[in-house]
Design a protein around this nucleic acid. Structure first.
Lengths: 273, 273
DNA sequence: GAGTGGTCTAGACCACCGG
DNA sequence: CGGTGGTCTAGACCACTCG
């Protein structure tokens, strides 16, 4: 029909329109690929490509051997990643670390979401290049090792994010709670403060990348889905030494990642959508 | 061969290995799809899928009708999006807005990158839902209008990011420089401060999404490429009113998006890779 | 066992690029 | 003009799910 627009794009747009106007409601199964192929008089490969487009936009999720479904519109969970564990401030929503450890659950409850984290899985591993760099591990150590604490985090029963924190092994020997596969009651920041490492600053970096196999599985995504957002935070102590690297992987759409600086209306802090 | 690993993944991994070990160097053209199909004894469709995988990982760029090329490893340009235009602080690298307007060019030069922005393209448009919400435009206005200032930004000769700033039309009438398709010499923040809107805080949000047609074209990407990162900043004035919405679209890989809070070693501020 | 999506083939035609 | 990647077809077989 139209010039230059591929057939699969047309089909994707038509399905998207049906989703937007409610002909196809969230949770509904799309017609099977065969049905769509017949209806549009195209081959199933063309339909597959159309559906793949929709998946990339996050509007559709495909479960192999079952079908493709209109994605539920997520009530996004707003993660406020602020500099509030650096000093007291007690405006609403402040005073928590934002997105890390137990603060995650507290923040979720404030937003009327039920959230929980899995018990941390603790591993001692060989440090790879990114960790060596971030944690400032001296190059002379031949095979430096690190402690990794990984948690799966859920909001309203759904996979929300994966968090991995890395520490130098020597730090974990001073601060042995890091080696236990148990939540640290008072929070990692407070615990390490008691062990002589006051978190005085941090550096945050963001990236987007295709999900790994593990992430696809955890988030329940199929191939050709959205990119995940990676947030990495390097925390520095009072000596200016990096002592923690935390990498959080977010499922996009399900999360809004937010920073607030300076003075904004309280309503902005309260906002949860 | 191996169980369950699709052929196209095998091919993608093999090519990726060749890239990593330097058999295929940055800038090199991959063998044509036909050649790869012959070599692996698969159909060209399978090869296409393999190359598409590599594109998603950012390792390969495809130029239609010319070939697929090993991506040049980008020297990432570090954008520090900090709260430094809120008050004076003169550690190295501070004192600029971070990623906005002229600050972008200054920051780039500090990192030994040559950067420039296109002349702003100014449009007056009907406000759409996201802008209405962010700028707090009253709902009673039947067809509210906004001013949009869009710039293309380049680093070292390559497309780096797209930035769109939105203002309420009434504000642009008070502050007419916003309507001119010219860089605002003293910077938008300073200019608006002179017009009675002191930027006292802001809210930042991040997202990842597939690129639009326009973005694909600007960044020189082909379909099935990486996701782009979207950063939206809502700036608030001394009355707690939102008066500016700035949306920046980053090409991932080419950028590192960074925040710094509290005390970190000066070396972290300096770091540019 | 019927139905689903995932993978794959062996072709085809096209638009665009370069010499 | 020949070569490239983009689109598309009309099949095929598989692994998996579900009734």
């Amino acid at each position: 029909m139209a010039d230059g627009i591929p057939r699969y794009t047309e089909i994707a747009l038509e399905l998207q329109a049906q989703i937007e106007q409610g002909t196809l409601a969230p949770g509904d199964r799309l017609p099977t690929e065969k049905e769509l192929a017949d209806r549009w008089v195209v081959s199933t490969n063309t339909v597959k490509k159309a559906i793949s487009e929709l998946r990339k936009g996050g509007r559709v999720e495909t479960i192999p051997q079952k079908g493709s479904f209109v994605a539920e519109p997520v009530q996004p969970f707003v993660i406020t990643l602020n500099h509030t564990d650096l000093g007291g401030d007690d405006a609403p929503g402040r005073g928590f670390g934002g997105g890390e450890g137990k603060a995650f659950v507290v923040e979720a409850e404030r937003q009327q979401h039920r959230a929980w984290s899995s018990v941390p899985e603790v591993r001692v591993e060989d440090a790879k290049e990114p960790e060596i760099k971030a944690l400032g591990i001296p190059r002379d150590q031949s095979q430096p090792q690190i402690v990794r604490r990984s948690q799966q985090r859920f909001v309203d029963g759904k996979a929300n994010s994966l968090q991995h924190s890395f520490f130098r092994l020597e730090l974990a020997i001073e601060a042995q709670a890091l080696l236990k596969s148990v939540d640290i009651e008072e929070g990692t920041v407070a615990y390490l403060q008691g062990r002589g490492h006051v978190q005085t600053g941090y550096e945050d970096e963001f990236n987007a990348r295709p999900p790994t196999e593990e992430e696809l599985k955890f988030f329940g995504l199929s191939k050709d889905s959205l990119a995940v957002i990676e947030h990495r935070r390097t925390a520095y102590d009072q000596n200016g030494e990096p002592f923690r690297l935390t990498i959080t992987i977010y499922k996009p759409g399900a999360n809004k990642i937010r920073f607030i600086a300076g003075e904004v209306p309280d309503e902005v802090w309260q906002r949860s959508s």
